[in-house]
Write a protein that binds this DNA or RNA. Sequence first.
DNA 1: GTGAAAGCGCTAACAG
DNA 2: CTGTTAGCGCTTTCAC
Lengths: 370, 370
Amino acid sequence: MEPTHPIAQDDALPPAATSGHASERKVTIGDVAARAGVSKSAVSFVFNGRSGVGSDARERILKAAHELDWRPDARARALSRSRAQALGLVIRRDPTLIGTDPFFPQFVAGVESYMSTVGYALVLQVVDGEAAEQEAYARLAGEARVDGVFLTDLRVDDDRPSQLGALGLPHVLLGTDRRSDSPGIGLDDAAGIRRAVRHLHALGHQRIAHVSGADRYVHSRIRREAWEGEMAALGLDPGALVEADFTGRAGARATHELLDHPEPPTAIIFSNDIMAIAGMSAAADRGVRVPQDLSVVGFDDIPLAPYVFPALTTVRQDVFAWATACARSLVAIVEGNEPVPVTLPSVEFIVRASTGPARPLSDARQGAPE
Amino acid sequence: MEPTHPIAQDDALPPAATSGHASERKVTIGDVAARAGVSKSAVSFVFNGRSGVGSDARERILKAAHELDWRPDARARALSRSRAQALGLVIRRDPTLIGTDPFFPQFVAGVESYMSTVGYALVLQVVDGEAAEQEAYARLAGEARVDGVFLTDLRVDDDRPSQLGALGLPHVLLGTDRRSDSPGIGLDDAAGIRRAVRHLHALGHQRIAHVSGADRYVHSRIRREAWEGEMAALGLDPGALVEADFTGRAGARATHELLDHPEPPTAIIFSNDIMAIAGMSAAADRGVRVPQDLSVVGFDDIPLAPYVFPALTTVRQDVFAWATACARSLVAIVEGNEPVPVTLPSVEFIVRASTGPARPLSDARQGAPE
DNA sequence: GTGAAAGCGCTAACAG
DNA sequence: CTGTTAGCGCTTTCAC
């Protein structure tokens, strides 16, 4: 409070400021330095955690900064360090459909929770097509708005990793792409699906169908392949497969298609909860009871999953932890540090009421309430 | 391609760069100016849409910039114009619960869709408490990361508007607060609820209950008051009210509570779809059939709403358009322009299968399947 | 119309 | 260990 250093202050005031009446001028590092009676670099050093400032000086600096309520201006910092201290996430999705996705908000929350602890900002962009997406990355890179980006919704033979490479934009992949040598962090989707298949098998199900997402997405494909693989491993006949697109509409349609079959499945594993819930409704619509006539498994464990009727058996991934790991990893990359090895929690399989024992094959025809 | 101008290029190279081997140097406005044979300010003028550059020069500049694939560096721009060209959105929500909310992704998409057309970036922050929220705003403002913010989840007697005012952070309110003179843009929630009440009344319902969100939120309260008001306007007895919190869990609990009543409601209006869906499941759990024994109305029209069983009657708001309007408005504010008057599409009332005629009062006891 | 020059607020060499 | 100095890349007066 009292021990201000007026002399030093006057010294540091830029000549220009003495003219006007300096009431509303933004407080800068110079003001802090002056008030603490040190040089600007001393202040800078303290705020960047570098050594080379005596503890008494450091003390005064911190105090002065606090009294002045000063924080380093992110823009100036970004310019002089040639680093934006921001990471980008561009989401390519039909804007009207974006509300469908339980993944996105959780991912954002997870990423942000780590980033804010290290002073990074998250820059978000929503685009709705190939061209717009490319332009978005080009701009983020060209304008140097961000230091790196997260790449989501990985596709099979995705060429975005190499495009990002060409732009010189550091990135992490949400998922893994063997083709690319970009670092990728993925959850073990396959394990969840395998557990679902085994669970149903243990309940006596033989005809286990799968409703997948679009096969061009890596995560859709992984889930589908896991289902196929586990069916084979258990010695079951390959089940019916319908490719859908993760929407409720497609889930309902796929379910009808499967149930129209002369030998309909006794269980369906959906590639996400939305489709699974829509599928249960489709079943209910035609008098097929879940789980008596048909067992249903979802994927994601959306917040609504326990509160639909019957409560949905599903696979839960810890998206938040995943996102945190991605953020940690990307920050390490852009700062040129050793990437920290990540250990992700494994997926959980949550058994609720939508799965039950298979009926004896003989009377497994649907639509026959007692 | 071929027409490079090595001489001009060399001219523009800062002396320092000649020492090292200048291969990967970032291209700057100087390079563009040199290549076009003009001064840096000419380039700047062209890229900022100002007059004062001859059309031939402008031509060459655009060409040079394109050939060099140059875009103004956002950081440098931000510093010299004292403007971040970015807007902030801080979401305060339990991170694990954020996936519940259909509003947030849509809002982000809408806001972004406008912002990207005017070259603004969206900076997102997710916090989980009062203190963290305040700190987030303080940082956003102090570090000058953003030029303004959107204020969501408006509360009754919210003091955040004045806090933002104190920070000198321009903002728009998502909703309206009579107390504050901050500009606010809100959808007409009340109209949707009133229509729901009238719809149910027309179907013969008399005992129409409401499951609200936490009453400290403006939007919860508006919806509750609209329900109360319309009930009164129609001459109906005040219906039962249960205050919940927008989660499935609370929706289910509230539903049980209402149905436990000796004279249970024949219809329930929930303040969001999640609670409504959970409520339908709760009803199904106890053998109450929707809509035969109980009509249910939700709010939001989440993507799943048409695909639950029975399909949910609900109120749809155009969140995307709302968000776009908010963004337009905030950009105008931070740029000191006249705020454009906004006209928002009105809410829609979507009738699906979860509402039906009320049973005659005499046998309106639940749990009595034919 | 055009170009030179002075910042924007901070960081980081580099002397002292 | 401290202070001085020169940028970071762009915008913007202000002379020419």
